[in-house]
């Protein structure tokens, strides 16, 4: 399990890996927003929590369709499905690796973008992303498992994952704006998603392996 985790993190973290791509995407989307709505810092500061949350979710989805793809194509998933560390544990390791290489870097970059959006304090945004992005990885992994055997599954994946992520965006952006009660709800959603997702993901992967 930890072997899978380390290998996936190493693969994603090399130059040009999916971690870099997700960060660049996040920054690029965040750059386009002021170009679209104007440079009024007061307006930008007002919409920043929501915009940065949506951008973070989209950036995290970017690399999701590759989550199981390489292992599926070279047949190593078939081996994993039979071997002792169960598919559930593998799914959990994959989710953790995905979060470590997308959610965590996005969170670390967010204070910089918050400054560019004129947010005075970015602590709440930082904490909300730190707590909320694991839910994005967890629910996204279910989508990756479901679309595993589809050619160009990456096109369907956002359609099935984004509506499921509505609570994460609502509570996440709420917590980033320091709305009372949002942070506990976000934490609860994230926790439940991370606990239940490995089972749903493993079931989906198993079906697509045809075993």
């Amino acid at each position: 399990m930890s072997a899978i985790l380390f290998r996936d993190v190493r693969l994603a973290a090399r130059a040009g890996g999916s971690a870099m791509l997700a960060l660049a995407f996040f920054a690029a989307v965040a750059t386009l927003v002021p170009l679209g709505v104007g440079a009024d810092l007061r307006l930008l500061a007002k919409i920043a929590p929501g915009v940065l949350w949506v951008a973070a979710v989209l950036a995290a989805l970017l690399a999701l369709d590759r989550l199981f793809q390489a292992d599926f194509e070279d047949g190593s998933l078939d081996v994993v499905a039979l071997a002792p560390p169960s598919l559930e544990a593998t799914a959990f390791a994959k989710i953790a690796a995905h979060w470590l290489t997308t959610g965590l870097p996005l969170t670390l970059l967010s204070p910089l973008l918050a400054v560019m959006f004129g947010l005075e304090t970015s602590g709440a945004l930082f904490v909300s992303l730190l707590i909320g992005t694991p839910a994005v990885s967890a629910i996204g992994a279910i989508g990756a498992g479901l679309t595993l055997s589809i050619r160009r599954g990456g096109l369907i994946l956002p359609l099935i994952v984004l509506p499921l992520l509505a609570p994460a965006v609502i509570f996440g952006a709420g917590a980033a704006q320091e709305v009372a009660g949002a942070l506990p709800l976000l934490a609860a959603f994230s926790l439940v998603a991370c606990v239940l997702s490995p089972f749903a993901t493993a079931a989906a992967v198993r079906l697509n392996l045809g075993s």
Partner: peptide, 14 residues
């Protein structure tokens, strides 16, 4: 509605 559409799209893709 998006959940329904995602379900239908997924079914049609497999």
């Amino acid at each position: 509605e998006f959940l329904y559409l995602g379900y239908i799209a997924l079914w049609n893709a497999i």
